Each structure stands twice: as C-alpha cells, then as structure tokens.
Amino acid sequence: MIKEFKEFIARGNVMDLAVGVIIGGAFTAIVNSLVTNLINPLLGLFIGKIDLSNLVLKVAGANFKYGEFINAVINFFIIAFIVFLLIKAVNKVIKTKEEAPAPKGPSAEDYLKEIRDILKAQEK
C-alpha cells in the first residue's frame, strides 16, 4: 500500500495540484491585502468610511456585515480578472506553438487533370 501511495504522489497531476493550491493560498493573501489596504480606502473616500469591513446593518438584534461581503466580492472580481489574464496569456502562447500545417495533398485541380489524362489515354 505504501508503494501505491508513493506512485500516486509521484504522478505529475498531484504535484501540479499541490503547487496550484499553495500558490493560490499565497495569491489570496496578496489579493486580500490589496483590497484591504489599497482598494477599500480608495472606495472609502467616496463612501465616507475608510474600512468597509466595519459596515454593519443591525435588524432586530442580528448583525448583517455587508461590508465584509463587499470585500469578498471585490476579492473575487480581482482574482477572476487576474485568472482571466493568465488564461489569455497561456492561450496566446499555445497558439504560437501550434503544429506546422500538414503537407497538402493533391488539389481538386490535380485530380481533374489526372482524370483528363486517363480519359485521353482510353480514347486512343
């Protein structure tokens, strides 16, 4: 069983996934910092409050922290936009590495000329 586990872990897909999760976690921390330290104060200038996470709606003793929700939405859109840019860049690189076109076979004109020659040879 240990041997099978080692083979499973050694597969490229599992390692790629692990690297993706680690990088994703680090990237999330960067985006959270960007939103909290740069974007929220900028939005706070227009809204009148510096920290959006403190925005709370109190109804019948329940606290609705819509400011934190706004932060999460901003984080999502930033991450989604950056992932979009990364995928766009990868697709651009893949397009440039496309295989060379397959060698062209005979064209329809070549076939017609061959048929013409065969018909001429049969007439004689």
Rank of each mutant, 00 (worst) to 15 (best):
A102H: 08
P101A: 14
G24Q: 10
I23P: 05
A102F: 11
I94E: 14
K58S: 12
I22M: 14
V14D: 06
G24R: 15
L85Q: 11
I87H: 02
P41I: 08
K124D: 10
L42F: 15
G105I: 08
E7C: 04
V56Q: 09
A100W: 02
Y66H: 07
I87G: 00
A89Q: 09
G44I: 02
L112F: 09
F76W: 10
N40W: 00
K104I: 08
E4Q: 11
A62S: 14
G67R: 02
K113T: 08
T36N: 14
Y111K: 06
N37V: 00
I23Y: 14
I22C: 07
L38A: 12
I87C: 01
G44M: 02
F76I: 03
L43Q: 02
N40D: 02
E109T: 03
D110C: 06
L17W: 08
L55N: 02
F77S: 04
L112S: 11
K88I: 08
L86N: 07
S107P: 02
V90R: 15
L42Q: 10
A10I: 07
T36R: 03
P106C: 02
K58R: 15
S107D: 01
E4F: 09
N63F: 01
D16V: 13
I22W: 04
A62W: 13
E4G: 09
I23E: 11
L34P: 01
L112W: 01
N54A: 09
V59R: 06
A108S: 11
L45E: 14
D110I: 01
L43E: 01
D16F: 12
V19C: 03
G12H: 12
L119N: 10
I115E: 03
D16I: 14
A89W: 05
P106D: 07
R11Q: 11
A60R: 10
I78Q: 00
K49M: 03
I9Y: 08
K92Q: 06
I79N: 08
K65S: 07
R11L: 07
M15R: 15
V31M: 04
A72R: 12
E123T: 05
L38T: 05
V31N: 02
S53T: 08
L57R: 01
Q122K: 14
R11N: 10
K88Y: 11
V73A: 11
F84T: 05
E4M: 07
G67Y: 00
K120N: 14
F5L: 09
A89C: 04
M15H: 12
